[in-house]
Design a protein around this nucleic acid. Structure first.
Lengths: 187, 187
DNA sequence: GCCGGGTTTTGATCTATGTCAAAAGCCCCC
DNA sequence: GGGGGCTTTTGACATAGATCAAAACCCGGC
């Protein structure tokens, strides 16, 4: 729980009341490797804080699994589109390692927004950061070569290669596994 | 001003007080074609609502202008990274037509957040929608062919071809102008 | 009506990356 | 400790799209 509070405080400093309310409403979950947090077709009703472990989000296109994001410890995770719109998710969220998560439902969180505007503010600020991150990734994806994108990824998440199979990384980078393998051979 | 209020209300319905506060703080600007709303290197201190006209955001890479977004009437516009971080922008925002804009400074808007949590909520919800849109664009960019992306764009903004030069559209799609021209020839 | 600049098209060629298929490597488990 | 099944690498070939260069088009201003 400390981790969560510490993380939120980096976005917006919260008062003691708000903190204890958060602590009361997030629930700890410990799940084993390969488990699913969400399967396509069901609605994602939770926001998660990933305290320990690695996750991937992927969807299936032409029979192939396309991993389009990873999450590492100390980040918020959800199937954003499904969470916001309350529509069935098109993606799956799977654990790549055993994980420790803190979960809260959307309903509870929105009640907290009403009680504590400062929590809503923290979330608003978090959104801003996440939006910028996605923008950066977008620009990067569009205008760098596959090799550059791989190197950027390595800098961002050193050690990812030990925790995530190559095929998933390739999909994340938007290239084929074979190409990634060749890029690695060249480095 | 009606347009702005109507637009915000689609995200979150506001009370009369909040509405009149917004009306007092947004300032109308009318600017001619080719003018700049922002030039790279300066900090973007405003959030704009584009009431009439078209804008593009672009940055310069290897001496080439890369248009990475467009905005059409009834949308919020800013150089998000610069606006949020208060760092000098790497992008330029240019008018592709004469435009009518409503502008508010970040400081004023944040004061309004303190006075009216409902305004902050509307912004939070708007962020959610904008995030989802960016996500969709991202997935689309990654996993559709250039021709498919072009058709998607045409559906999203019918009439864009009459308002925006081909070269900018090509850059937006992440392809060369020549390729886009050939795609059009094939349709 | 004509000129000149910007915009769009067309052609020829080059390159990064994809696809398919097979071989290697690795590791978990009985 | 020897399969069997993943994961990764390697090879041969195909292709979307880039680049460079030139021609054609289009349109506003004189």
């Amino acid at each position: 729980m400390q981790d969560l509070i510490r993380y939120i405080n980096t976005y917006h400093r919260l008062g003691a009341e708000a903190i204890s309310a958060l602590e009361r409403h997030f629930e700890k979950q410990v799940l084993p490797k390969s488990e699913y947090l969400l399967r396509e077709g069901s609605v994602c009703r939770h926001l998660y804080f990933l305290q320990q472990g690695v996750l991937r989000g992927y969807y299936v296109l032409n029979g192939k699994e396309i991993t389009h994001w990873f999450a590492f410890e100390n980040s918020f995770v959800t199937s954003f589109h499904s969470y916001i719109t309350a529509q069935p998710a098109v993606e799956n969220i799977q654990l790549l390692e055993g994980c420790v998560l803190l979960a809260i439902t959307k309903e509870k969180l929105e009640k907290l927004f009403n009680q504590f505007p400062e929590i809503e503010r923290a979330v608003r600020i978090a959104y801003e950061k996440y939006y910028i991150r996605l923008e950066e990734r977008f620009v990067n994806a569009h205008f760098s070569s596959a090799a550059e994108r791989y190197e950027t990824l390595l800098q961002q998440y050193p050690g990812i290669t030990n925790r995530v199979p190559l095929g998933h990384i390739a999909a994340y980078l938007g290239i084929s596994q074979e190409t990634l393998s060749r890029i690695r051979a060249r480095l």
